[in-house]
Design a protein around this nucleic acid. Structure first.
Length: 625
RNA sequence: GGUUCUGUAGCUCAGGUGGAUAGAGCAUCUGCCUUCUAAGCAGAGGGUCACAGGUUCGAUUCCUGUCAGAAUCACCA
């Protein structure tokens, strides 16, 4: 790392020139802003107090020393208190030449991940070389991360909010892997509970034995239809009870449908055969629907947990806590934990009828998962509407004596809202996941057909490209935003395909692939090794691009620490934009031989880096578009 | 009311650990395809970084307060 070298030499300079030991924390090496000459900058203001000279003098004296002592430094300049260093071209030449070590294992992995369909002919960035230890691999960390995401309820189809969750979870997992951590992706399926009973009850009462086959409907949609139906009938009942003179709270409790749903939950927890059978059937419909949607989104899991298999453990633990006097039982039989000392309220852990609630189940699954993996960190990708829930969960586990509770991390993300507010499943104001994906792919197809660049492709190949672009646009749209911020999605304005978008970045990558393909056809060697730089006079724009590539591993580490794919998305965009400028201004294939080799090598390196970044976002790059 | 989060161009968003003249995209306007993919490039206009204090050589960034918005505080999940 050249930054470290500069830093160390600044310290040495200060020691030798001024005889002072400078606190390392005062030195920050940052990239020089574009408007100024140089590659890396030291801000000397923090040294002024200790060294008792003017900023300009200090900067010049340090600059001179470092230039003399570090061979990679070509020159320096001083503007006010800013000391700007320029690196030698040789440094960047070496950088390209040294970053082309062949890594077959890596090549195979990426090849399979990126190009599962071998029938499309493609140029692969990795087919010769292009992976380096110091550029793309960071130090291996032994930390094991368990990341839970998706966590669907099996009573309704997935909507746009779930898409954000799934993409975020998948992407953070990929990001952590790329940063050198070990990752296990898990999905906790909320397959039981009062909400599931609601759709079961509605289907039983009004379903006329409909099945996904008989209605030719996706299973999750069919079940979701009955979840909505329950709510409609429930509201009607409350309305008529209130009209009969009952108070609203009482009406909510005494509505026949609600009482029946609660009874069904009791039956379920008691293991009633018929209830369990219905539950199995309807859940299986939902799972086959989810499978389709997960596949389209391109997300996957290493391990599935079902709440129906973990909630009993939660109940057991709660009982133990009760015996130990940590929890309290009220007269009606309900079990609570008192968190008033922590500045929170009392929290219910078991209902008066003995059935378990959300918190009970989460206690159970947390313990089970810890025992399964003994991870260094648990990440829960769950919306910010549950901030309070996770705050409580950590405290409850801690109180119950689980000292690993501080390993839980709630990766809280913002809601996806419509222009007029929140999406609500029960009221039908949701953007359905399958519908939206269809729309995105359709828009990609329309645009693509207008441009007409895929005329040589078969229908099947075209569809594959449209799928990649439509999903690329959707994924980038959702992932480029800081996770904790809310996203407003306006269904009337379609998601962009131009500008700061997924397709823009994909397009840049496709252009590079095209270049390399043409070079290949013309018999031009695109091997990056042993490049000759002697005949190259101007290398300025190339350095700007290389600096961006050089940033890749820094961005990965920072993004991993922050659990933020948004940083990767923005990086990919900046790199793509930078390359497009370069591409526009500099002929590559028709350049003179040495220059052509260097430019191709650089293009290849950039293309590879962009594709890597997009892979972390779950975005694929087609061969043409 | 308590807790947490957000507030940057008309709109959607970037702005590591405080640093130089706050950046992109969309939208509006102007140029660039007989040369490697124009889903592109170049340029113009557009800002009291919500507001007020504080910390210091320096604050969009850190601290406090105010205002505005969101989430949550359920025998829903």
């Amino acid at each position: 790392m050249i930054e470290q070298v500069i830093k160390e030499n600044v310290i040495k300079a200060i020691l030798e020139i001024y005889g002072e030991n400078l606190d390392e924390k005062l030195i920050s090496v940052q990239q020089t802003k574009k408007e100024f000459d140089g590659d890396f900058t030291i801000v000397v203001f923090p040294f002024v107090k200790q060294l008792k000279k003017s900023p300009e003098t200090i900067a010049n004296e340090i600059g001179n020393y470092v230039k003399e002592n570090v061979s990679e430094i070509a020159d320096y300049n001083v503007i006010k208190g800013f000391l700007n260093f320029s690196l030698t071209n040789q440094f960047w030449f070496d950088y390209i030449n040294n970053n082309n070590i062949s890594e077959k294992k890596f090549r195979d992995e990426v090849d399979i991940a990126l190009f599962p369909k071998k029938n499309i002919k493609h140029h692969n960035f990795l087919d010769s070389d292009c992976k380096s230890n110091n550029l793309f691999f960071s130090e291996k960390s032994e930390d094991l991360f368990v990341i839970e995401y998706s966590s669907p309820n099996t009573n309704k189809p997935l909507h746009l909010g779930h898409i954000r969750n799934n993409l975020l979870g998948y992407s953070v997992a990929e990001l952590l892997k790329e940063s050198g951590r070990k990752v296990v992706k898990v999905n906790l399926i909320n397959d039981r509970g009062i909400h599931i009973c609601k759709s079961m009850l509605a289907w039983q009462k009004w379903g006329n034995n409909e099945t996904p086959e008989s209605k030719n409907m996706k299973g999750d949609s069919l079940v979701g239809k009955y979840y909505v139906k329950f709510d409609v009938e429930y509201k009607k009942e409350i309305f008529s009870l209130i009209a009969g003179g009952m108070g609203e709270e009482e009406a909510k409790q005494k509505s026949p449908s609600m009482i029946q749903a609660q009874e069904m939950l009791r039956m379920w927890e008691a293991g009633d055969e018929e209830t369990i059978k219905l539950w199995r059937t309807m859940n299986s419909w939902v799972y086959s629907g989810f499978d389709v949607t997960y596949k389209r989104m391109g997300v996957d899991f290493d391990k599935l947990y079902y709440e129906s298999e973990t909630y009993l453990l939660g109940k057991e633990v709660v009982q133990k806590g009760l015996d130990a006097g940590i929890l309290t039982k009220k007269e009606d039989g309900s079990v609570w934990i008192d968190l008033t000392k922590e500045g929170l309220d009392e929290k219910l852990l078991l209902r008066s009828d003995g059935t378990s609630v959300y918190m009970t189940q989460d206690i159970g699954t947390a313990i089970l998962r810890f025992n399964d993996y003994k991870p260094d960190k648990f990440i829960y990708v769950v919306g910010n509407e549950q901030n309070y829930h996770f705050q409580v969960l950590k405290i409850v586990l801690d109180k119950l004596g689980y000292d690993w509770s501080d390993k839980l991390y709630h990766l809280s993300y913002g809601m996806v809202e419509l222009p007029d507010g929140k999406m609500k499943s029960r009221e039908g104001t949701v953007v359905d996941a399958d519908d939206l994906i269809d729309e995105m792919i359709h828009t990609a197809k329309t645009t693509s057909d207008e441009l007409g660049k895929l005329s040589e492709f078969s229908e099947q190949e075209k569809n594959e490209v449209h799928r990649m672009i439509g999903l690329g646009a959707l994924k980038y749209f959702l992932l480029k935003v800081d996770p904790k911020k809310n996203i407003v999605f306006n269904p009337k304005e379609s998601i962009d395909f131009n500008g700061n978008t997924g397709p823009f970045i994909q397009y840049t990558c496709v252009r590079i692939k095209s270049l390399l393909r043409k070079a290949n056809e013309q018999g031009i060697d695109v091997n990056l090794k042993n490049l000759s730089f002697e005949s190259i006079k101007e290398f300025k724009k190339e350095i700007i691009l290389l600096k961006k590539v050089y940033d890749y591993h820094l961005v990965i580490q920072e993004a991993a620490i922050q659990y933020s794919p948004a940083l990767i998305a923005n990086y990919a965009y900046e790199l793509a934009k930078e390359f497009n400028q370069y591409y526009q201004e500099n002929p590559i294939l028709v350049a003179e031989e040495d220059e052509r080799k260097v430019r191709l090598a650089l293009s290849k390196l950039v293309g590879f880096t962009i594709e890597q970044a997009l892979k972390i976002l779950g975005i694929e790059v087609p061969e043409r578009m």
